[in-house]
């Protein structure tokens, strides 16, 4: 647990600590706050869910897309990552997971996002309040975020390669 926290970006590690320091009932309330505060899609994505990747492991429809910066003079690993999510209000648990990842990873660097441990979602002491089964959705979200970040970072580092949005079917796990 502490090993994971030390490898997470500080912003995400702080959220994890807040959850772990709360009682189970407070953890649910905290998750609800993240759900309430998940930002809506910006105009360029609103109504264009086809440009987002669906995370099929979530029991409710969740779509996400990653943007990797291309600032001149900045090394690929230090480029900024932006995250965008869409999930309906009747799926607050899924929205809460997305809200945590948004708050913790949006605006971080490529290296920080890719360095986030795959099992970071297990560091929030959420298994006992939402069940391990439901937590799999958050694990899947993180793996899609890292995958898109790696792909898009590689694409922008090679100017000739078209920046591609990975399609959901090839990304689903066996």
């Amino acid at each position: 647990m502490s090993d994971n926290s030390s490898r997470m970006p500080e912003s995400l590690a702080e959220i994890a600590a807040d959850f772990r320091d709360s009682s189970p009932q407070e953890r649910l309330q905290l998750l609800l706050e993240f759900s309430d505060e998940l930002p809506p899609l910006p105009e360029r994505y609103a109504g264009h869910l086809d440009q987002l990747e669906q995370v099929h492991e979530c029991q409710s429809p969740l779509f996400l897309v990653v943007e990797v910066g291309a600032s001149p003079g900045v090394a690929p690993d230090d480029q900024r990552v932006d995250l965008f999510f869409s999930a309906p209000p009747e799926a607050p648990t899924t929205r809460g997971f997305a809200g945590i990842l948004h708050e913790g990873l949006d605006g971080r660097t490529v290296a920080e996002v890719l360095g986030t441990p795959d099992d970071a979602p297990m560091s929030f002491a959420l298994a006992e309040v939402v069940s391990p089964l439901r937590l799999r959705g958050m694990v899947a979200m993180l793996s899609r975020i890292k995958r898109q970040t790696a792909l898009k970072s590689a694409a922008s580092a090679t100017p000739d390669a078209p920046a591609s949005t990975p399609d959901a079917s090839s990304a689903s796990r066996g």
Binding site: L31, Q59, E90, T93
Partner: peptide, 22 residues
């Protein structure tokens, strides 16, 4: 509900939650 947090977002007055999984 299927979603364990849906009750917390708002529910029928006087109701309590019973989660299938938890």
């Amino acid at each position: 509900d299927e979603d364990v947090l849906l009750y917390e977002t708002g529910h029928i007055p006087t109701s309590l939650k019973l989660d299938w999984h938890q």
